[in-house]
Design a protein around this nucleic acid. Sequence first.
DNA 1: ACCTGAACACCGTTCAAGT
DNA 2: ACCTGAACACCGTTCAAGT
Lengths: 232, 232
Amino acid sequence: MTPSPAAGTRPERTRRNSPGRDRLNRTQLVDSAIAVADAEGLDAVTIRRIAAEHGVTAMALYWHFKDKDELLDAIAERLFADTTLPPIDSRPWDEQLTTIFESFLSAVRPHPAVAGLAMRRVFSSPAGLDVAERTLTELRRGGFSLEQASDIACYVLAALIALVTADPCHPSSGADDDELLREKKALLGSLSAEQYPNIVASAGLLTGTANPDNYFAIGVRQIVGGIRATAP
Amino acid sequence: MTPSPAAGTRPERTRRNSPGRDRLNRTQLVDSAIAVADAEGLDAVTIRRIAAEHGVTAMALYWHFKDKDELLDAIAERLFADTTLPPIDSRPWDEQLTTIFESFLSAVRPHPAVAGLAMRRVFSSPAGLDVAERTLTELRRGGFSLEQASDIACYVLAALIALVTADPCHPSSGADDDELLREKKALLGSLSAEQYPNIVASAGLLTGTANPDNYFAIGVRQIVGGIRATAP
DNA sequence: ACCTGAACACCGTTCAAGT
DNA sequence: ACCTGAACACCGTTCAAGT
């Protein structure tokens, strides 16, 4: 309809991320959303920010996601999709559960800032459904009733996420200049030693575990051990 | 300096909440922040909203709190302050831990929307420090090293909060018309029964526990049981 | 000491319009 | 099909000013 403008003047958009792709897609957008969250915390994940990350207008995202919540859904979905469920074999149910949990932790540990998003979104994606179904299966093999299995599955997912979110090695969610960390350590160390002997003694430990792998290993052992303790 | 305006015309401010008090204070503001969160979710807790709740300008809050984060700190502090620690007695360490956890749960269960705020703020208030110190004490009585006790205390707090946040009885965080709930239940029930047999079978259970008290009781038993399972 | 008014930089989102 | 521009209602926060 309108005559084309004088040729030769291409708009100088610069696609900063994912070079080579000319058009956006959900996968890339989720990629950079997670990257931004990892680097600067979940609060930095903003429609406008993710758009800018791709050299594009904020409204462009609304073509790919109905609204911000759908973007967050997609982030959670990614966490479940990155969980590689172990093949079903003949090991006892509690060992299988352990492997499932470890696999989920491997997927979520690198992204503590978005871990919490997975909590209420297990049933919103095929990947999440797979994890839930598999967990329920093993719990039933352990002799739990349907209702018990549901309650436990619900709690266990939350506990695993809690383990990641509470990871003493990631005290702040991004903008930690480790200046704040030293401040906190100093604050804890300067407390009344007769009122808070254990806190003062472990001031260094409470602000960052010596061995994170060990922390997570113990966490899984506690979760599975707790389930076994309530098994019929 | 300036002449006073004609007498008799008092400003018609209406203090809607906490009738009887003429001036704001932190306690009231935290009260209504928690009330708003309970009713409409944490996102509804806004400086401007809480101010309006007291018939006051948004900027008025900045006299009582340095910024919004300090308001959130105060909410978390309240949760710990509402935790009534049991007196130290001669019962075994794991029973004492159980009582501590139950007490914390009683304080937090009514306010799932703000439970997550307590996670990173244990060491920011005397009440939080008391809970942490007491937990560490009992863990050390159980024979754990200082490092083990720190890791476990860190995780256990998160697990208790997870228990509340994941409570299947509070599926949404406020604006749940139980229309969404029926939708979700229907969605789960309509899944492929051979792909997700357990999820389909427990569709009703996963969207709301029959017995919440039982859910929390099992949760505590699992947490304490898990700790006992890793005890020396 | 305690609160207001106006202003700033930022949100998410809608809607018509461009190519 | 995919993206832009302008606009709206909302944030948190600062700063000078009022009483």
